[in-house]
Amino acid sequence: MSGSNRSSSEGITVMAVHQPTHRGSGFHLPSFRRNHAASVQESAESAEAGTFTARAYVFASVRVLMGFVFLWAFLDKTFGFGYATASGKGWVDGGSPTEGFLGHVAVGPMESVFHAWAGAAWADWLFMLGLLGIGLALTAGVALRPAALAGTVMMALMWVAEWPPAKHLSDGSASMSTNPFVDYHLVYAVVLIALAVVSAGDAFGLGRLWARLPLVRDHGWLR
């Protein structure tokens, strides 16, 4: 019996020693979940960058178009190209850029004030320098905040000169106002402010270079 027990014990020991162990083969399937998450994040970042770029280009295009509006007004009033200013009546020909518009104001609370300003040398110079400065700033994409401020003041004065809320002019005739509040002067002012807020000069413009100038860097309102 003891010999039999000893043989059984030895057999069990041998089996225990030679019992195969099941280990992993070392091959792992790729983590599709991790790769998918990274791909989704990259796609989202790419889409966001594309949206930002498209938005920047849209604002830059609006900025250039607005710049041309002001520059053309300056050029036409200076040289009399025959559009809003008749040929031979430009500023260089001795004409007044403000006399025609301000002198014909026929409605509003500042009617008499505008009549007094019409044709004054200081009014002509301020108006023309404003058109030129705003136009150049918008076209180049620099000093958009000062341009927005100056442009908003100019548009506000022109809005008051036309006075859209009035249904009748001072002589009793119909004003032909199409809207009692919103006209293109108000729209222009809002666009100028928006362009300054979003720094529209950074795309297709010199806004980034302008912002690096020491004077501009120290005085943010010059951006």
Rank of each mutant, 00 (worst) to 15 (best):
I193Y: 10
L222G: 03
K89C: 11
L131T: 03
T51M: 12
L65V: 14
G151C: 02
S61R: 05
A120W: 08
S175L: 06
A47K: 10
W91H: 09
Y188V: 14
A147F: 02
A150L: 09
G130Q: 06
R145N: 06
A86M: 12
L186W: 10
A56V: 01
Y184M: 13
A161S: 05
L132D: 02
E42G: 11
M154P: 06
F52M: 11
V113M: 09
A120L: 13
E10Y: 09
A49D: 12
K167E: 14
E10D: 13
G24E: 10
H28K: 10
E45I: 11
G80C: 03
H219V: 11
T13Q: 12
A211I: 09
R217Y: 08
L136V: 15
K77S: 03
S7M: 10
L192Q: 05
G26W: 08
T178N: 12
W122A: 00
H185F: 09
M110L: 15
Y188P: 05
L129Y: 06
A196I: 02
K167C: 09
D124L: 04
W122N: 05
L209F: 12
G95D: 08
S9G: 06
Q19F: 15
P109F: 06
A147P: 04
E10H: 11
G3D: 13
V198I: 12
A211S: 14
R6H: 11
T21H: 14
E42D: 14
T85R: 06
S177D: 03
A211Q: 15
Q41W: 12
P164W: 02
H28L: 09
R34D: 13
K89W: 15
R145S: 08
Y57M: 14
G103S: 08
S96Q: 04
M1P: 10
R217D: 10
S87W: 11
F181P: 10
A121V: 12
L222Q: 01
S7A: 15
S175T: 11
D93R: 07
L192R: 07
A86Y: 09
H115L: 04
Y83M: 13
S4F: 12
S2P: 14
L131C: 01
G50N: 01
L126R: 01
F52V: 11
G80D: 01
L129P: 00
T13M: 11
A73K: 07
A137T: 03
D124E: 04
S2R: 15
A148N: 00
S177I: 05
A189Q: 05
E48S: 14
F204H: 10
A161W: 00
L157P: 03
H219S: 13
M158Y: 11
A200M: 04
A194N: 04
V216G: 04
V14F: 14
A54S: 13
L129I: 01
A118Q: 01
G220L: 02
E10G: 05
L129S: 05
G100V: 00
T152F: 03
A143I: 03
A203R: 08
W221K: 04
H36S: 13
V69G: 03
A211V: 08
S39K: 10
G151M: 07
H219A: 12
A140K: 07
F181L: 15
M158C: 11
G201E: 05
W210G: 00
G82H: 03
G50L: 00
L71M: 12
G201Q: 04
H115C: 05
A137D: 00
A166I: 05
V182R: 10
S39T: 13
